[in-house]
Every structure is written in structure tokens, then in C-alpha cells.
Simulated scan of single mutants.
Amino acid sequence: MTTQEPVVVAQKRPLLAWLLLCSLALVWGSSFILIKRSLLGFPPEQVAGGRLVFALLFFTPFLARQSGQADIRVAVRHRWVALLASAVIGFVIPAFLFAEAGAHLNSSLAGALNSLSPLFTLILGAAFFQQALRIRQVLGILLGLAGSLLLVFFSATGSFQINAYALLVVLATVCYGLNTNLIGRYLSHLPALVSTAWLFAFAGPIALLTLMPTDFFDRVVNHQNGWALSALVTLGVLGSGLMSIFFNRVMQLSSPLFAASVTYLIPIVALGWGVLDGETIYAVQFAGMGICLVGIWLINKA
């Protein structure tokens, strides 16, 4: 690593990449039920801001140590625009979208819609990052969009009814797809811990500003919100903190598209939590989820 352009040459470790991917699926698949539990004590905007602030607290010791290293300071200074853009697009905006949607959607449905992330990773990669598309990938995109239409434009019983809150999740996956390409293009040369810590160094203060005018801190110290607070801390420290390191590391070990394919397993985990929580899953939702996953499989198989 030089002071001008710190670069880490990532070695290909497929087994490690798969292990990290499974860990991501387990934790991120559980994030939808954690959002649901957090909403029992906090309104959506506080759940969104709180998870980012707790993630920042998790990374504070790492940031303090990294700030004393000249090569990291140079790397961050050279990439601060990309870090800020990635923090806002990949963390701040989706956090608020998922929290608002989580107040109105089943956690299993939110998890199913989250499977669109690799689809938008590919579409935006082709549109803005000069990535080539193959015929099979185009077919996968069409199937993924068809599955998402079932989830967004039909109610649970099968009647046509636009679900505006499901559209919020779709918009969040667009942000994830763009952010995956941004990280792959501009931040993949940074060590995973460095890039992730500094992403939250930008995202955390933005979230804190949104919490300051609210009664968030009064709710934090209210013992009646103990379980909701525990869910929110877990969401921030594990879901937004540690797993973000894993995600960036997977991209270094493989590719942005492989990392985004974690959403194969996320709907399964989310569906399991939904069933355990007593949510009713209807045939149209299974159909939409299945079509989406077939589309994502075709995209990655290509």
C-alpha cells in the first residue's frame, strides 16, 4: 500500500466468499423481522436513523485507529466523493425506505422484493458502468421484473392493487444496485474494513442530524422499549455494521454481481421468520418470489 494510491490485491478464495455470503444471508434475511420489532418502540424515521448511528458507534474505534494512519487518510481524501455518494445511496436512503415500508408490509414480502438487488446491479452496471449484457441475462432481467410486478401490483389475494409501500422496497433495491456498482468501481481497492468504516463515518452523522429534532433519545432510555432497542442495536451493529464489512470483502474476493446474489437466500430466511411470526403467505407472493429468483439465477448463471 503506497501513500499515493493504496491498493489491496484481492486473492480469490471461493470457499471464504461462500461462507461470508451465507453469513450475510442469515443476518440480512433477519433484518426485516428486526425492523418489525424495532418499530414497536420507535417510529420509522427513528429506526432508520438509529440503525445507522449504532453502526457508526460500532465503527468508531476502527475510525479512531485508521485516522492515525497516513496512507488511509490519503486514500480517504482521494475517494471522499465516492464514499459520500455510496453512504447516501447505499445506506441512508435505503434505511429510511425499508423502515417506512416495514411499518406497512410483511417482513417476508419485504425480503422477497429485496431479491431484486442483483437485477438492478446488472441493469445499472450495463447502463452506466460499461458492463456487457448477455441474452440469458436479459431474459433473467425480464423474469425478475415480471416477478416484481406480481409482488407490487397485486394484493395478497391476487386482485390488482398497487402496493405503494412495496414500491419503496423496489426503490431501495435500485439504490443497492447502484451502490454495488459504485463500490466495485471506485472503492474495491480499499481494504473492506477501511471502506466500510468510512462509509458510516459519512452516513452516521447524516442520520444523527435526522434524530436530533425527535424524541429518539428519550425512547432509548425508556425501559418499556427495551426489546425494540435491542432489535435496533442488533440491526445497526450486525446488519449495518459487521455485515457491511463482509459484503465489501465478498466483492473483493469475487465480483459485485456475486456479492449481490446474497439475495438468493435472504428471501428464504425472511420467509422463515415471517412464518414463525404468524404472517400469512399467499400463492401470488410465492409465485412472484419464485419468478424473481429464477430470473436472478439466470442472471448469475450467465
Score class of each variant (00 low, 15 high):
L167T: 07
I135D: 01
F246T: 01
L265D: 02
G68S: 08
H104W: 10
P191C: 11
M243A: 09
Q161A: 14
L178W: 14
G111H: 05
Q161R: 13
G290I: 06
Q11Y: 01
L209S: 07
L293Q: 06
D71N: 13
A283K: 01
V237W: 01
G144E: 10
S244T: 15
T3A: 10
D215H: 09
T3S: 13
L211T: 07
W80N: 09
R185D: 02
F32L: 11
F200N: 09
A25I: 07
N225S: 08
S195G: 13
V9Y: 10
V76D: 01
L182D: 04
R79W: 03
I162D: 00
W227M: 12
L257M: 12
V53E: 07
V88P: 01
L16Y: 05
M243S: 14
I89W: 03
L145W: 08
Q130I: 00
S240Y: 10
G236D: 11
A110G: 14
V47S: 09
F98I: 05
A85P: 01
G147N: 10
W227F: 13
V8T: 12
Q285C: 02
A85C: 13
L124Y: 03
W18Q: 10
L209Q: 03
Y165W: 15
G49L: 12
L193F: 06
W198S: 06
R65F: 15
R13S: 09
V27W: 07
I135H: 05
L238I: 03
F154H: 09
I93Q: 05
P43Q: 07
A103T: 06
F58W: 08
G90D: 12
I89P: 01
W80I: 07
W198P: 02
L151C: 04
R136H: 06
T121F: 11
L105D: 06
L63A: 13
L168M: 15
Y186Q: 04
V221T: 15
S86K: 00
S155Y: 05
S30R: 02
P267W: 08
A70G: 02
G226H: 01
T173H: 11
I35Y: 14
A64W: 14
N114R: 02
F96H: 13
S31L: 07
F58M: 14
G288W: 00
L105Q: 12
F129K: 12
D277Y: 10
G204I: 08
H104M: 10
V53L: 15
F258E: 00
D71P: 07
F42H: 05
I89C: 12
L199R: 09
A85K: 02
S107D: 05
N114A: 13
P267V: 11
T234P: 00
M243N: 00
K36Q: 13
R77A: 12
F129P: 06
R249Q: 15
I33V: 15
W273F: 10
L150Y: 14
L298G: 04
D218P: 00
P205W: 04
P118F: 02
A192K: 00
A110K: 05
V76I: 15
